[in-house]
Amino acid sequence: MPVTTLDVREVPPPERHPTIHEAFEELASGETLRIVNDHEPKPLFYEFQAEVEDFDAENYAVERRESDEFVADLPKV
């Protein structure tokens, strides 16, 4: 499954979710958007779960690598 990585740590906070949504929309079915963030993206998970039909919530995964580095996989069905 192809993975596209997007590091949003340098993106201004108000622009992060729109940037992530745009990148996710560009994916083909079966691909995954991997985001690198400075905090746990739990609000983003809930937003995707509620609003994005192609989001595969069952296969969502997040890993805390450092105190300010979280890596989350957002798979697309």
Rank of each mutant, 00 (worst) to 15 (best):
D38M: 11
V62Y: 13
P2Y: 11
S67M: 11
P2E: 13
F45V: 01
R9V: 03
P75M: 12
D73W: 00
N59S: 12
R34L: 05
Y46H: 11
D54I: 03
M1K: 13
Y60V: 05
D56R: 07
E26L: 01
L74H: 13
L6N: 04
F45Q: 00
R64H: 10
R65W: 13
P12W: 02
L74I: 09
T5H: 09
Y60P: 04
R34K: 14
P14F: 05
E47W: 05
F24H: 06
N59L: 02
R16P: 04
K76Q: 12
E69S: 04
Q49K: 05
R34F: 10
P43L: 07
T32Y: 07
Q49T: 01
Y60N: 12
V8Y: 13
R16C: 04
L44T: 05
G30I: 07
H17M: 13
E10R: 11
M1H: 11
T4N: 08
A50M: 03
F24N: 03
E40W: 06
E47I: 05
D56S: 08
T4Q: 14
F55H: 08
D68Q: 15
A50N: 04
R16F: 02
P14R: 03
P75H: 09
P18W: 03
A61E: 15
V77S: 09
I20V: 15
R65S: 12
H21R: 09
M1S: 03
G30L: 06
P13L: 11
E53P: 13
Q49L: 04
V8I: 12
T5G: 11
E22A: 12
P12H: 00
H17T: 10
E10C: 06
G30Y: 09
E26W: 06
L44N: 01
